[in-house]
Nucleic acid binder design. Structure first.
Lengths: 333, 333
DNA sequence: TTGTATGCGTTATCAG
DNA sequence: CTGATAACGCATACAA
């Protein structure tokens, strides 16, 4: 069927070992013989068998990424950047998603490892310790992203710091009756840290949320929850756990005839594309997704090469656009 | 190091063949022996070696997807649906992107095949015939998506029909001075078909575009090009090749103080999330991304199993929202 | 139903 | 720098 090393070796008049070297470590073979071999490879239209190579070399050049969903632009962009940062041709990216279901995440991790992944990119820290143990036993290097912590290698950011900065901004504007529209926190440390971080800052000021809603990712979920939160007429600001929820809230506000930011302040988190498409444009927390993907790729390669890579903490930043303002009570009528 | 079939076989008191069968074809082994084997597998924490399995069975269970970019929600969602439609555990998805660079697409395809992909999901029909030949020689099944045609198996839709329906709507509203804001058409049959399809319909009516801009994917590119297109004061409608460009155009319109749709009609294509977040919400062409991903997965599996799958053409549909209206000249002042 | 034996295509070790 | 050869771990005809 397909040409093998033997065919190539025969045609080039060398041994299979030399052919293999030409492919994997060209410098260790004389230019002259290399030329012969490469020519034989071309004429035979030869390409190495993946399984055989993986079996013999004990690595696949495949890196696995397990994310909640690609429907969330945050992960789609991060993965995209991650993939671009992988050394051309040396690695390929195996992508799996789990729809925010922890059980399914575990299966996906196992599936990728079973597929021979040399390393893994995972989202957040929150998962069954057994998974980390299993990974340790299998000696599969991994990098966590979109969060930070000292228990595992990561390339991420501090969700608490991000939300705290945002809530501080809202407080500084004069808001005291604030509600939070959070993503589902179960098994999601990013959402949980954002919610708890905000709560903690409020507590520090002797305040607490007027209301808290926890809803699944999605525009309509955000819209619906916002309407419910605003049933409390005292609320003057709604801090959202992510941009999609915030965009949904904004839409609901329009429908309800509420002016943003005059009647109500709405803030997001992530700074994905939609944040600058809404009207008015969304005030949100910028997360360096692209840079994070790149750093994660670099770190993971270190680990795969057996080096002891250094985790990296990226800064988040408030992007003040058009959906925030002082509460009505603090303004001249 | 890790347990192998031999270890398991020894512990369970059976042959390696039986162990292999337990994993790949459990029904062909007595429940009693199967139980013993499974137990041995568990206690030894055994999991099959990927390379060895691929080498011996001549398949990897890996499917490759090569898309322009995951930054485009269209592909992120399609890939997500595609992945979900793959039989759980049986296949894994290898994702590669090429940033709309044909040369790089070719490399990615080769890289995935070199990684042992059992089948491929590709975007559109436009590519060097040599690639198709190469795929044929290698006997790698593939399915094309986001387009249609009779030269290759596909699960997609008719870009021409989609844009024609939209332009017809614009014409019916009374617009005669129309411009088009298109994505880059080089090596992109989706963009090209949308542009040419629109042009053809206009020609049929004895009309032509007032202006045409061709720009790279991106919000700001759309905004900038829109401003240039509107330098021609006669233009009353701008048909866009995709939603992101349209959203950019909408933003530019706001900045320029143009009212949408009163002063100018703007239409999109794809119906991704942002289409319903803009203000006003975007009138666009809905593409069944999710369904397409599912159908593509089903078709590809047919082909991988050696059956002669049937291509499937999905319908597109106009979603009339808030960015279209008759031109000022057709309205009562 | 189960076991035996061989092949799968590379890489890597070790001489030369 | 190059060649011979032994793993690598599993699947699968074939035999029992």
């Amino acid at each position: 069927m397909h040409a093998t090393v033997d065919d190539v070796a025969a045609l080039a008049g060398v041994s299979t070992a030399t052919v293999s070297r030409c492919l994997n470590d060209p410098d260790r073979v004389l230019p002259a013989t290399r030329k012969k071999v490469m020519e034989a490879i071309r004429t035979l239209n030869y390409s190495p068998n993946f399984g055989a190579r993986a079996l013999a070399s004990r690595r696949t050049g495949i890196i696995g990424a397990v994310v909640p969903t690609l429907e969330n632009a945050v992960f789609a962009h991060g993965i995209d950047a991650f993939e671009h940062a992988l050394p051309e041709g040396k690695f390929a990216l195996l992508v799996a998603s789990y729809g925010y279901d922890p059980q399914r995440e575990r299966e996906q991790i196992e599936a990728l490892v079973a597929r021979g992944a040399d390393g893994l990119l995972l989202v957040g820290f929150d998962r069954d310790p057994a998974i980390y143990e299993w990974l340790a036993i299998r000696k599969v290097p991994y990098v966590l992203a979109w969060a930070c912590g000292d228990a595992h290698p990561y390339a991420g950011f501090d969700n608490v710091a991000g939300i705290v900065a945002m809530v501080r901004l809202v407080l500084d504007l004069g808001h005291r009756n604030i509600s939070m529209l959070s993503g589902l926190t179960a098994g999601n440390d990013r959402a949980r840290n954002r919610l708890e971080g905000a709560r903690a800052l409020l507590a520090e000021k002797g305040l607490s949320f007027r209301g808290v809603a926890e809803v699944p990712y999605g525009l309509e979920n955000g819209a619906k929850a916002f309407a419910e939160l605003m049933a409390d007429r005292a609320v003057t600001a709604v801090v959202c756990g992510n941009d999609v929820l915030a965009a949904g809230a904004l839409r609901a506000a329009h429908r309800m005839g509420l002016r943003v930011p005059e009647d109500v302040t709405i803030t997001g988190f992530d700074d994905i594309d939609i944040a600058s498409i809404t009207f008015p444009e969304l005030t949100t927390v910028r997360v360096p997704h692209k840079r994070m993907g790149q750093e994660a790729a670099a770190l993971l390669q270190q680990l795969i090469d057996g080096k002891s890579g250094q985790s990296i903490l990226l800064p988040t930043k408030i992007v003040a656009r058009g959906t925030h303002a002082p509460p009505p009570s603090c303004r001249n009528a």
